[in-house]
Design a protein around this nucleic acid. Sequence first.
DNA 1: CTGAAAGCGCTTACAG
DNA 2: CTGAAAGCGCTTACAG
Lengths: 338, 338
Amino acid sequence: MARVTIKDIALAANVSPMTVSNVINARASKASPETIERINEAIRTLGYQPNLSARALASNASRLIGVVVPFTEDQNQLLLDNPFYAEVVSGIESALRARGYFMMLSGLGETSNEVDALAQWNVDALIAIGIYREGLFERLRKRHLPTLLVDSYLTDDHVHHLRVADDQAARRATEHLIAHGHRRIALVTGAVRDGGVIEQRLAGYRLALDAAGIAFDPDLVLAGSVTFDWGIDAADQLVARRATAAFCTADLIAAGVLTGLHQRNIDIPGDVSVLGFDNLPVSRMVYPALSTVDQTILAKGKLAGDIVLDMLEGRKPPRETLLDARIIERQSVGPVPK
Amino acid sequence: MARVTIKDIALAANVSPMTVSNVINARASKASPETIERINEAIRTLGYQPNLSARALASNASRLIGVVVPFTEDQNQLLLDNPFYAEVVSGIESALRARGYFMMLSGLGETSNEVDALAQWNVDALIAIGIYREGLFERLRKRHLPTLLVDSYLTDDHVHHLRVADDQAARRATEHLIAHGHRRIALVTGAVRDGGVIEQRLAGYRLALDAAGIAFDPDLVLAGSVTFDWGIDAADQLVARRATAAFCTADLIAAGVLTGLHQRNIDIPGDVSVLGFDNLPVSRMVYPALSTVDQTILAKGKLAGDIVLDMLEGRKPPRETLLDARIIERQSVGPVPK
DNA sequence: CTGAAAGCGCTTACAG
DNA sequence: CTGAAAGCGCTTACAG
């Protein structure tokens, strides 16, 4: 039982292989209704499955989209430490699947060449999530692949962008805390990097402070990494610096802050208010339930998929797509203690 | 700048394309050191990248592994609702990448034919996670693809298995609760299905009860779904049925139970003890930190990748691989209240 | 140690 | 509306 090919179908339906190809690819008006019916019948009875490698080779288009997610060298896996990635990827996958494309997912290290690997499969386009390192970016731009950068501020004429309006979102978040009477508001965050998302959020935070006439205190910016453990550590400094509220630029960090605060028997939000960012599922699971900035991650992923396919199908989506974020009020933010 | 092919290399190095092919594929002893050096030089300067579609077509092997994760029809995305999948997939991806294979990831619905899609790409093998439905299984077995089932008890001669020793793990978990003096121990779980993992855990739970001389009470088995929300609801019944401890067959459920209990001002573990299963990252983030059964998910994913590649490379791994699970003690389990 | 030839399963101009 | 031919970029026996 060798693989059934287009030739077998052609034989069975009494046409040439090329007519079969035309019918399969729905190039209408290229075959009579009867021919089409005969061919489809043959496809059904013989159980024909197109060979996509062959198609990709011949047509120079693969219907394959490469998705790269950064990972750090020391922990060699992706998705894991931040559920954010899982959710974006999930959104992308469903958007692609809905439109008949396939996803090739790869982690992307600092030095290695996973992008090359994807290129070898002739992916039609690339979606890169959270790329900020210039080096990687250079590597990406060398291939003239249609590329969508999610959550990156690196600029280039040949690249499309999708992100939330980070400065605005951070500004609103900070204002939310100010509206509850807080003035000593810490920003707990990952590393601030050029071209990264956190830089923008820091700017939004400062804008809100300025507008409220609160002096910016660099000691209140606690930059570490986007991890639960960093949040636990940051709780110490929060207390030491007498902050009454913490705006965390990731729910993962916020969850850590909550845990760190519990360990010191500090009441949330009685003593300290905590606001997150992302609205990950985990934000509902912690105690107290975390107030956070919703960035509709899943929708973002789907949109990423759709934008990239629009690019491929010549629908010229805008170079930059900005998503709105809104605050979800739960139990972790309250009025400033007297 | 057309694509540089094997021919270009051959031309530049003054050999035939087939020698280039031999060198690229490291078929040793097939070329003199000088030839090899000349070819590699040409590859470097011309920036040659093999076309994997062409290779797959010609060699009838793709180095592509299909990974399918079930999703439910109503919510059309994968990974999302259970971080467990994200972590397994992450493990698989890194194992495959380390050995030069690629992962093709797809959601798998009840009725749809994503497996067909993967087959069209000529994946060399399939890893299916959490497949229990007979229908799907039939579809899988029809293709004579090497297949590894993760967390499934469906049996078939042509399939390999990887899972934790669920009955044993559940038994030990229940015994852990019994050792703390509990006798009214609820089992909070997803739907119990033939060929599913939960069936086995239920069996282990009963074994532990029997061994301790505790009568099995069907009212104490709370079966819903593997979700946070189900956990919240289950908390009500826990109270109504006067359970002093809950063994949850997933951390996600346990997180919900914690939240539901908090809403009723029930102290954990003072009034009710809660034990989870999985040791997801979230189990550290909830309050109190969740005692749980560690099933080393990431390692499991890596192992899944390695087993499948061993199969492909003719190393004949055992048909069934069983993982051990151990209990991680944190703060959610305590002595039975007097 | 190296090569000429055929073929993997498709699609793409080009004809008719 | 349909077909014969060439080609996509590789690999695989088979020779020498």
